[in-house]
């Protein structure tokens, strides 16, 4: 018999390290005579789109085309420390440090532009390739010409931005206090089909709504949401990490199964944008928030289908049949206390 069910799962996630742990990033930026800029940041591009994101933020902040930005990341000889790529912090922390680097570079640029345009540097805005007096738009100079002028006069053409979201801490007794710099929210909705003969759980549909603060690059955010949900699906239904005495017993793709294209539904991403005043242009991380709710969502859908709760991961066909009482438990569940202590 095939039974269907629908489930919802939600989560709240503290971005970054929190609990007073060091959480900072530095970005350097350099202006070339031709008006292009190079960004240095120590974080790693793992495919999540950090390089694209930092270039977009810098281009926006300086009012120049995206094509005029270049980036060097994770080169320990040249890039300043940006902290690790983890805890869904890259957009939030490294993005903010990139914006601060731009603002640092804009100071000497505005000074020179003020001299050339005979205007107050504080009134200058950087927009659409121009540095312009916001009260008198006729007073303007192109970003490229200003860049050349900066080099001709030997002005400071490097900027640096440091951003820290290191929090205070929580009270050891009550756990109340300054835990994380900001929080992300996400909800998912799944429809599953459970085959009670084979124990197979199939996720028919999966929708994932993730709070991105502000989606700097919506297509990349969708990629994070879709990929995150599929990883979460693997955690819920397939990925069985077998550890014996601290050793992985199935550290191979032939024994540790992850979802293939045939195992997953077309995840329906929903980007929720609730402006975060502490993020770069209101943005925050979406990586882990997009992964965390998937397993509870699927398990709620299974419970809805069977009227029985799954309290283990992954819900493989074998374990599901045991849950349904169609397969006898062959071996006793070994608890931590029963585990033999390894000989030294």
């Amino acid at each position: 018999m095939k039974l269907r069910g629908i489930g919802v799962g939600s989560m709240m996630y503290g971005l970054g390290y929190g609990f007073a742990r060091p959480d900072f990033s530095t970005t350097d930026i350099e202006l070339a005579p031709d008006g292009t800029v190079t960004i240095w940041n120590g974080a790693s591009e793992l495919g999540q789109g950090l390089q694209t994101l930092l270039c977009q933020l810098v281009a926006e902040e300086l009012g120049i085309p995206y094509e005029d930005t270049f980036i060097i990341t994770a080169d320990t000889g040249r890039t300043p420390d940006a902290g690790p790529v983890s805890a869904s912090r890259s957009t939030y922390v490294q993005g903010n440090s990139a914006l601060k680097a731009c603002r640092d570079l804009k100071k000497p640029m505005a000074e020179l532009a003020g001299e050339l345009l005979k205007t107050d540097p504080d009134q200058l805005i950087f927009k659409k390739g121009l540095v312009q007096d916001q009260n008198e738009p006729s007073r303007s100079i192109s970003f490229t010409n200003l860049a050349g002028g900066m080099h001709q006069r030997g002005r400071r053409v490097r900027g640096s931005g440091y951003h820290s979201i290191t929090t205070g801490d929580v009270d050891k007794e009550t756990s109340q206090g300054d835990a994380y710099a900001t929080y992300a929210w996400a909800s998912q909705l799944a429809e599953v089909e459970v085959d009670t003969e084979t124990g197979q759980v199939t996720v028919l549909r999966l929708a994932s709504a993730t709070d991105a603060g502000k989606a700097i690059n919506p297509k990349m955010v969708e990629g994070q949401i879709e990929g995150g949900a599929v990883q979460g699906l693997g955690f819920a239904l397939m990925e069985d990490m077998k550890i014996e005495q601290g050793e992985f017993k199935n550290a191979k793709l032939s024994t540790y199964l992850i979802p293939t294209a045939a195992d997953v539904p077309m995840v329906e991403p929903l980007i929720v944008e609730v402006y975060d005043p502490t993020g770069p242009y209101g943005a925050k991380g979406v990586a882990e928030p997009a992964t965390i709710p998937t397993a509870p969502t699927i398990f709620n859908a299974i419970a809805n289908a069977l009227g029985q709760r799954v309290r283990f991961t992954p819900a493989t066909p074998e374990k599901m049949l045991k849950l349904l009482g169609k397969l006898e438990e062959k071996e006793e569940q070994i608890t931590i206390e029963d585990m033999p202590y390894p000989e030294p």
Partner: peptide
């Protein structure tokens, strides 16, 4: 493409 694993994208955008 079911013989090609991808850990990042969730496959949808590849498909």
């Amino acid at each position: 493409i079911s013989g090609n694993l991808c850990r990042c994208t969730g496959y949808k955008k590849i498909i």
